[in-house]
Design a protein around this nucleic acid. Structure first.
Length: 882
RNA sequence: GGGCGUUUAGCUCAAUUGGUAGAGCGUCUCCCUUACAAGGAGAGGGUUUGGGGUUCGAGUCCCUAAACGCCCACCA
């Protein structure tokens, strides 16, 4: 990396260029690569693979930032950290994009044929492949691209086939005809969770079906009159006296005249509509069940494209009409026939295709399914056994309720882009073979359907580590992975399936922790989407504010509860300003420590201020380590911000100006500055990697050898000897005093240029402390002279300040509150005694003892004994003080 | 219908076994003080959505009401 002198460093941080330079430095030195032969414990994260043709959005930026923070943190903390990047072929989404392009040329995929279409899609995917991961690079992602994977690559393909065949052989994959959610636009089945329901205002049409060979009719209510041609019965509730006599009789379908029976079934709700339901097994899931119970053969009247079929069941004038056109026309025709009795407004939920928002059509068709119940067992136990932990844990409930009510998973899609199902049919006999390879392509034809995209994503944690080759070094070293970071919107789609498949095929949970972050929303809380036009492009934010700024802002917004995150462009100023502060504070330190020696800090020469900042740093280190292990990202960012800005910059750097001018301690102060800067950059590095690496490289004598880099430096840990609680408390006196003086100065409107003396009225023991910190006070409160006046003012506690002739006479008690240690400890003691009292009252409360969880009772007892021992300690302390 | 989340300063949000309500932005005052005006020093601003309860003590626990949001299920 090109070294620049400090003088060349501008006063404004140039994020754009420095970030590029630093990322290149890491890449060229192979610093992201994980060593599978390392003896360090592994720390593994797999990226939630973004769509291969996708572009980076804020969700990725958040997700990626958190994963990178973890990876960098553990890499610096003695782990062999591996973050595996990769992309998803995203079946429907990608195919849609390519088909759209074809449509612009007035072509469909069928014009090209499967082979040509796939060729085109591969070309498109390959062209875009890597684009999104290159955008992740702008984020500073330290993933190991030598291990980059794609859900359709050879290895993943191998894993998919292996899994499919094994599940089939175990009877956990089956093929059969069921009602599925059919998207007429995608022309494919989709799974239950790919169907989203929207409340729509529709109508309830009441249609009269005349009885056969006698007068009278039965009236049914329907929301979908166009399906009436597929009716196979009219059902009524067996206990409905209204229709008792009609059961068993036949009615005639208006417009076509086909005869259907009236049947009785519990499914029918007497009180809804007319109490009579038309049964259309081919186009409604409930009707399908009813039809099955009554042995009624389904009749298809709508085809795969959502058009009315051309068969004998559908009236001629409706054939091959779009379903909605057909509905209109059906109603018109019924009106003419006077069999349409009433139209009632009716609100109902309509299923929509998640991908294209087309209203789905329940359609009876032959599909492949995974039997989920047996597979879910271990995935459910995983939570109870604590082998998989969700953070925040409320998502465990959500996960469990879904897993415990899981339904079979429809995995076949009538698409071309994806993993073609490894089932082969004998061209003549139709015999089916499920195997990884076609036994004989001359005789057997492969199933034309492909698998749901999430089928391959579900194998991602181990397919990326070369499973099914379980003896390979990567799998052995890095599986199971450690943490999964993702949004709650794909818990069912992805997380649940990975856990299920992980247990089934590796006998282990694929990761031990699932960290669920909130969703990124716009300023007004709306979900960001291209169609709404409210998206904020992370790459643009990076261009404008810098990657570290983006990362810091996003990190700071992560709350413990995983709330959704509202962002706006301006929010990134927070991170940018912080980066700039880091830049300038570092410039100050670097300018002043250019001649620092290599010696360690001389502890004998430490001032009270040195000890205070070392103590603060040490505390910050502890909080950081605790927080990151508890996934408290937002708090971690805030703690660093506060330490850097409010402690280091606002106080210590100002104080250091005093110390640097004092020859006796100047060099030691430089050592402290260097140490603090070095440690702070290490602390900040996981969140703000570029700026910290850049500055760290400029610290004199920080590297042991030329190739050292911050990214691989050791992460700070709490050090006992850097703990100075006593001095830290005394230092607070300095701050209180200075703040009070600043306050006075402002309220008496004393400008800086005027020379003022301050007479401090203090008693002797206070005076000693005061004299030791005088220099700091003078400088930071901009006071020229401080003189002391022992015991001059009477009744100090209520005395007021006297200002005259540029002199301020200040009773010390107005500046600082010297609380004596005994009363402080007594206060503490009182608090503890009160707490103990309430806890004991709790234990004596019958109701509580009866109803409270045993753990809580145990906890209460523990706390009481804790208090008891603390009481003893404090009592002893008070005795000694007296 | 079932479940979950949210409600705290003008705005956006923090506050891990109950213990003095905090930050950023915005507002007001002063300051180009030799790292930083993307900065510095100060100030103001809160009956923590309403009601009830437990407790010495409640933003936090319990009950209840309301508003907003999300997930699941779904009767034509």
């Amino acid at each position: 990396m090109e070294a620049k002198t400090i003088e060349q460093m501008p006063t404004q941080y140039d994020a754009l260029n420095i970030e590029k330079e630093i990322y290149r430095f890491w890449e060229e030195n192979n610093l992201f690569k994980a060593d599978e032969k390392s003896s360090k414990p592994p720390y593994t994260i797999v990226i939630p693979p973004p769509n291969v043709t996708g572009v980076l959005h804020m969700g990725h930026a958040l997700d990626g930032t958190l994963q990178d923070i973890l990876t960098r943190y553990y890499r610096m903390s003695g782990y062999e950290a591996l973050w595996i990047p990769g992309t998803d072929h995203a079946g429907i989404a990608t195919q849609n994009v390519v088909e759209k392009k074809l449509r612009e040329e007035n072509k469909s995929r069928f014009d090209l044929g499967r082979e040509k279409f796939l060729e085109l899609t591969w070309k498109w995917a390959n062209e875009h492949k890597g684009a999104i991961l290159n955008q992740f690079k702008r984020l500073g992602a330290s993933f190991d691209r030598s291990r980059e994977r794609f859900t359709l690559d050879k290895g993943c393909n191998e894993a998919v086939k292996e899994v499919f065949v094994r599940l089939y052989q175990k009877g956990l994959i089956y093929k059969g005809a069921y009602i599925v959610n059919w998207c007429p636009r995608c022309c494919s089945a989709i799974s239950d969770i790919e169907t989203e329901y929207e409340t729509e205002m529709g109508s309830l049409w009441e249609i009269s079906y005349p009885l056969k060979n006698e007068s009278g009719a039965i009236v049914v209510a329907t929301t979908r009159p166009e399906t009436m041609f597929g009716d196979v019965a009219i059902a009524v509730n067996p206990n409905d006296y209204k229709y008792k006599d009609l059961v068993g009789k036949k009615v005639v379908i208006p417009l076509t005249g086909r005869e259907i029976p009236i049947i009785a079934d519990d499914y029918v709700d007497k009180s809804f509509g007319t109490g009579a339901v038309k049964i259309t097994p081919a186009h409604d899931p409930n009707d399908y069940e009813v039809g099955k119970r009554h042995n009624l053969k389904p009749i298809w009247v709508i085809d795969e494209n959502g058009k009315m079929k051309t068969n004998g069941y559908v009236p001629q004038e409706l054939q091959s009409l779009d379903r909605y056109e057909a509905r209109k026309k059906t109603i018109e025709m019924l009106k003419v026939q006077e069999t349409l009795l009433r139209i009632l407004p009716h609100e109902h939920n309509v299923g929509k295709c998640q991908r294209c928002n087309t209203t789905i059509e329940p359609l009876l068709s032959e599909q492949w399914f995974v039997k989920m119940k047996p597979l879910a067992k271990q995935a459910i136990e995983a939570i109870y056994k604590n082998e998989v932990k969700f953070i925040p844990d409320r998502w465990e409930k959500n996960y469990l309720s879904w897993m415990e009510n899981i339904r079979d998973w429809c995995i076949s899609r009538q698409l071309w882009w994806g993993h073609q199902i490894p089932a082969y049919y004998h061209k003549e006999t139709g015999e089916m073979i499920v195997a990884k390879e076609n036994p004989n392509p001359e005789i057997y034809k492969q199933d034309e359907d492909v698998l749901d995209t999430w089928f391959s994503s579900g194998l991602w944690p181990f397919s990326t580590l070369n499973w099914p080759d379980i003896d390979n070094v990567d799998f052995k070293k890095f599986y199971p992975t450690t943490t999964l970071v993702t949004g709650f919107d794909i818990i069912f789609f992805w997380v649940a399936r990975m856990i299920t498949m992980g247990y089934e095929f590796t006998d282990k949970a694929p990761f031990s922790t699932v960290y669920i972050h909130g969703l990124i929303r716009d300023e007004s809380g709306q979900k960001m989407s291209k169609s709404k036009g409210n998206t904020i492009d992370p790459v643009q934010i990076i261009d404008k504010y810098g990657s570290d700024a983006l990362r810091f802002t996003l990190t700071s917004l992560n709350t413990y509860g995983g709330q959704d995150i509202k962002i706006s462009d301006e929010r990134f100023e927070y991170g940018r300003n912080f980066a700039n502060k880091i830049w300038n504070a570092s410039r100050f330190i670097l300018i002043n420590i250019s001649d620092v020696d290599r010696k360690a800090i001389d502890n004998d020469k430490l001032t009270i201020a040195d000890k205070w900042i070392l103590n603060k740093l040490n505390e910050t280190v502890k909080i950081f380590n605790d927080n990151i292990k508890a996934y408290r990202f937002g708090e971690t960012a805030h703690v660093l911000y506060e330490f850097f800005w409010n402690n280091l910059c606002d106080w210590y750097l100002e104080i250091s100006k005093v110390q640097l001018n004092d020859q006796k301690i100047s060099m030691n102060t430089k050592r402290v500055l260097k140490y603090v800067l070095d440690s702070t950059l290490r602390l900040l590095h996981p969140i703000m990697p570029h700026i910290t690496e850049k500055i760290w490289q400029l610290i004199p004598n920080v590297k042991n050898n030329e190739n050292d880099a911050l990214i691989r430096a050791n992460f700070p840990i709490y050090i006992d000897k850097n703990s100075y609680p006593k001095e830290s408390k005394e230092m607070e006196i300095v701050f209180e005093t200075i703040k009070s003086l600043r306050n006075l100065r402002q309220s008496f409107n004393i400008s800086v240029g005027v020379s003022i003396d301050i007479i401090i009225d203090a008693v002797e023991n206070e005076l000693n402390i005061f004299k030791s910190i005088e220099a700091y006070i003078k400088r930071l409160a901009k006071v020229n002279e401080i003189s002391y006046d022992l015991g001059k003012l009477e009744n100090k506690k209520c005395a007021n300040c006297v200002v005259s002739n540029s002199k301020i006479i200040v009773p010390l008690n107005n500046l600082i509150n010297f609380e004596d240690e005994v009363s402080r400890q007594n206060k503490k003691l009182l608090k503890l005694i009160n707490e103990k009292k309430s806890l004991e009252a709790r234990l004596n409360n019958e109701k509580f003892m009866k109803n409270a969880a045993p753990a809580l009772i145990e906890q209460t007892r523990k706390r009481i004994s804790e208090i008891l021992s603390q009481e003893t300690v404090i009592n002893d302390l008070i005795k000694n003080l007296k």
